[in-house]
């Protein structure tokens, strides 16, 4: 498996100004502002291979977008080595830019008053696609995203979800090898979110494209990515598979219990084993420490007639919440 992205010791800082609040503050700020240097990314290293589906997770301001922008060539790193498809991103060589796509959520590049198709023909000219290539790719994308009927309607008449689809098509028309997606499902309804996720998976399968995704919706990460990079305060705190994520950070397992109607569950009794998330007469959901798991199961079997018992790794949302709230 070839490494397409190599990051070694990436550091990126930027300066911001402290502005005082209030009326007199604004007058003061006119004449003097205090400079503040923020380290957005401090010494991050990782590698990504062709065809991987990678998720960037981290709280706001952790450094995800900054790292992404460095990889795409928008930001110039302060120090470290960056290599994407063998190129130095910041040099922004044509050959490099023709192979990547950067989808930025709401920021549309489509002409507002014209049908999406017009913008696509412009993309064809920018990326110098042949007419056959262009037609083939467009048809494939429209089919995958169910967009054909909207091709010739002015973009301003489309709904937010359809505009997002149009935006995605615009970014994939030239079959980029690497997709950088920054919050692709933000503001979309549930159905549309699902459609976009399905599409990304299908596209990755068909074209072996590498997908790098940042999102605050854990469902995005969960359904698409098989590898996770977790960033907090500019540092990489996890780099590995999705499956191993929970066992690294969380010592609990999620346990769902369903018992026979004859019996009744007692919340207080359950609490001696772990944290009770929900509990009614016959069903309960608990987070139980691995060490106490055996004891719990024994006690359950001894005291109740079990209809269903489900033990699994806690989902990503829970893990991420634990990790980041623990830091506070």
């Amino acid at each position: 498996m070839t490494e397409v992205i190599k990051v070694a010791n990436l550091v990126k800082t930027y300066t911001t100004y402290d502005k005082e609040s209030g009326f007199w503050g604004s007058i003061k700020s006119f004449f003097y502002r205090k400079k503040k240097i923020v380290e957005a990314v401090s010494d991050i290293s990782f590698e990504i291979s062709q065809g991987e589906l990678v998720g960037f997770i981290g709280p706001n301001g952790a450094g995800k977008t900054t790292t992404l922008k460095c990889l795409v060539g928008l930001l110039y790193p302060d120090s470290g080595q960056l290599s994407v498809l063998g190129f130095k991103p910041f040099e922004r060589k044509r050959e490099f830019l023709k192979q990547i796509a950067f989808v930025m959520g709401q920021k549309a590049q489509l002409y507002w008053d014209l049908p999406a198709f017009e913008t696509y023909s412009l993309i064809r000219d920018i990326y110098q696609l042949s007419e056959t290539e262009f037609k083939k790719n467009l048809d494939e994308l429209c089919q995958l995203l169910d967009f054909s009927e909207f091709l010739n309607r002015p973009v301003r008449t489309l709904s937010l979800g359809q505009r997002m689809k149009a935006e995605i098509i615009a970014n994939l028309l030239y079959k980029p090898k690497i997709l950088f997606l920054d919050e692709p499902t933000i503001g979309l309804d549930v159905v549309m979110q699902d459609a976009i996720r399905e599409f990304i998976l299908a596209y990755n399968k068909r074209n072996n494209a590498t997908v790098i995704l940042t999102s605050h919706y854990m469902e995005d990460i969960d359904s698409i990515c098989n590898r996770i990079l977790m960033i907090d305060n500019g540092k990489l705190i996890y780099n590995g598979s999705k499956v191993d994520l929970s066992s690294k950070f969380v010592t609990e397992k999620e346990v769902n219990v369903k018992i026979n109607l004859k019996d009744k569950l007692n919340k207080q009794l359950l609490e001696q084993f772990g944290r009770v998330v929900s509990c009614d007469q016959t069903t309960a959901k608990l987070m139980i420490n691995r060490s106490k798991l055996n004891g719990f199961i024994k006690w359950l079997v001894d005291n109740y007639s079990i209809l269903d018992l489900d033990i699994k790794e806690p989902d990503i949302k829970y893990v991420v919440k634990q990790v980041f709230s623990a830091k506070k």
Partner: peptide
């Protein structure tokens, strides 16, 4: 201001 300049910079033009 809107950040669309970023989009311009990622195009091979």
């Amino acid at each position: 201001i809107s950040g669309s300049l970023d989009q311009v910079l990622t195009k091979p033009v």
